[in-house]
Simulated scan of single mutants.
Amino acid sequence: MAAATCKTSPIPTNLNHPHRPKPPIPRFRAVRCASRPTSKTSSKTLAPGDLSPAFRSVTAFAPATIANLGPCFDFLGCAVDGVGDTVTVAVDPAVPAGTLSISSISGIAASAAKLSRDPLWNCAGIAGIAAMRALGVRSIGLSLHLEKGLPLGSGLGSSAASAAAAAVAVNGLFGGRLTPGELVLAGLESEKKVSGYHADNVAPSIMGGFVLIRSYDPLELLRLEFPAGQDLYFVLVSPEFEAPTKKMRAALPPEVKMKDHVHNSSQAAALVAAVVRGDVRVLGLAMSSDGIVEPRRAPLIPGMAGVKKAAIEAGAFGCTISGAGPTAVAVIDGEEKGKEIGDRMVEAFLREGGLKASATVARLDRVGARVISSNAD
């Protein structure tokens, strides 16, 4: 069977560096992947014979993500700074050659307790194995430790962050040979098993910034460059409520009216234009204007309508559901104003939905998943 191949435009491939240089143009950068890997299809072997690890262990961090952004269901997402998952991968002689085991899971207690340590049923394990296969690793075994910084079912790309961190950690262990597109494909192996074949979380978690999925077959990703020097803050308000992706997807309409399709298409186009122009006001207006998905999902999150109203009245440029929810996300161009908006949204969740909630104000993460430490001993 033919191996998957990827062609990329000039994208920085050094995911280890915390401040990757960004060219002033173009505002769109593409990653094209010719085919999807499956359990029987791997990416091309990148070196003759089997690979030797560059380090004994590597730790990688992958940020949380906001998917859909209102009208951009399943085809646009962005990474947010400060919160995410961390994975450490190490060479382990006790693990059979060519395989990966999960040694431990820590972090948020509720999330860690629910996750399987079977690597075939854990997001980090699946993506880590896919990265090993893409690299052609056969002669050594790896052990993996996952530290959950994101709660499950939050709408912040928890599964994608685990997958992204694992893929980048494995890649870093062997010298960073995989391209961003190949790393996304490894993460998608995990996503399709646990939440469906959609890249709007795992792609921005790996690549940073805003990422648009132009095509799924073949996979083609466009990284949208939000202008340097422009401030963009996300107010993330997470209630004590779980919104399983499966349940939230079941609420979607089976058919869409032509007028709703036209409306959402225009809002999605406006949102993309706002991103590349750095226009936070238009970005917020477009994000708040989903007429297809949000109207079906918002009633399933107690108080969501009131939270959105409170955010707008407090000065947010826009507010919607992050991913499948229940986290509500608002956008603003100042951190202090974001804190005020977050307080009003927390109050609204309690007042309108009877739910306790917490608020975080985060910047756009322009870097994506990265290696944060390595050990050669």
Rank of each mutant, 00 (worst) to 15 (best):
K247A: 09
A243M: 05
V272C: 13
K246L: 14
V275A: 02
E240A: 14
A274Y: 06
A269F: 02
K246M: 09
G278W: 00
K247E: 14
R281F: 00
V237L: 13
M248A: 12
F241Y: 15
S238M: 12
Q267S: 03
A286D: 01
V256E: 15
H263Y: 10
R281Q: 11
K259I: 01
L252D: 02
V280K: 05
A270Y: 00
I292T: 04
V272G: 01
G291E: 13
P239V: 04
L252A: 08
I292M: 09
D260F: 05
S238R: 13
P254V: 11
L236D: 07
K259E: 13
A273F: 07
V275Q: 00
V280N: 05
E255D: 06
S288H: 12
L271D: 02
A268G: 11
P239E: 07
R277N: 11
R277I: 03
V276T: 01
L283Y: 03
V235D: 02
E242W: 05
K259G: 13
L285V: 05
L252H: 06
M258I: 13
G284Y: 00
A268N: 10
S288Q: 14
A243H: 03
A274Q: 05
A286T: 08
F234V: 04
A270S: 13
F241A: 05
E240N: 14
F241I: 00
L252Y: 04
G278P: 12
A286P: 10
D260L: 09
R277L: 14
A286V: 01
Q267N: 06
R281T: 13
H263W: 14
L236S: 07
P239C: 08
S289A: 15
E255Y: 10
L283S: 08
G291Y: 07
S265F: 11
F241H: 12
V275C: 02
V282A: 08
Q267A: 09
E255A: 13
R249E: 02
K257I: 00
S289W: 03
A274C: 06
P253V: 06
L285D: 12
Y233F: 15
